[in-house]
Design a protein around this nucleic acid. Structure first.
Lengths: 132, 132
DNA sequence: ACAAGTATGCACTTTTTGGTAAGTATCAAA
DNA sequence: TTTGATACTTACCAAAAAGTGCATACTTGT
């Protein structure tokens, strides 16, 4: 029971729907870099810093299955493959721009916030250094 | 080693920075509902459907610690508390709108995509029911 | 013969995330 | 006195996400 009591098909709102598609640590970043045009696997890997092969491939497969990107295999050897946004993916990716802008404008804040989080996670004997 | 080789303070780009702040299943949704103005805990819980007390509180605390929202305790009994966006949080939340719009416009697609994912995860003996 | 670069696949393990269910304090209504 | 409402807190546990490292197939360079 309890199917869509108040709203749309199982979602709280449009944002909810979107989030289910781009959830995960890497998808938004991958999409965003694809905005520059079709990109080879290796290039993507260098662009999305810190991503592992496993994750990158996995997310690319999901994005492809979800119709947001297309994979092109040039059947060459050594292998050559690239990924590009579909029109659906392009629209979604454009919607990510404002987030990028916010992040750029508030990078200093974000950096501070993240640093503070670190402190709480590894407070060690901070009090000592603190009083010194 | 390897500190900010090519880009900004440890981030791939502005989007990366933003994502670190709103990562998680619930934060964007919480922020988005707060756009309607200060909201009590209970209201939020009803708005963000499916969230548990634990998660809601936890995310609210983090958002507060990160300076995106403010908590107001009216010191009444039974307890009354509400949450509101700070100006920083408001800016960020506004940047979420396009995602909401995309989700609304493509809800049908998203629904299909999500359904397809389910199939792969629980394929059981679907072929049987399929041919029936 | 051997290492390197290409785009993956796969098994294994850790880390992170999220859910459930219970408990707290206070007052009011039944 | 038991129940209900409010806003949480806590402990415990399952599931999902992500990281590590090794392997493949083919070719070019040494």
């Amino acid at each position: 029971m309890n199917s869509t009591p108040s709203c749309l098909a199982g979602f709280s709102c449009g944002l909810d729907a979107t989030l289910r598609v781009i959830a995960g640590k890497w998808k938004p970043l991958i999409l965003y870099f694809l905005l520059q045009g079709p990109t080879r696997y290796g290039e993507l890997k260098r662009a999305v810093r810190g991503v592992s092969d496993k994750m990158l491939i996995q997310q690319l497969k999901e994005l492809e299955a979800d119709g947001l990107i297309v994979r092109t295999d040039y059947k060459e050897v050594p292998p050559r493959v690239d990924y590009a946004l579909t029109s659906l993916g392009l629209d979604l990716t454009k919607a990510l721009e404002p987030l990028c802008v916010w992040g750029t404008n508030n990078m200093a804040e974000v950096t501070r916030v993240l640093a503070r989080r670190e402190e709480w996670h590894a407070p060690k004997r901070a009090a000592v250094a603190d009083s010194a």
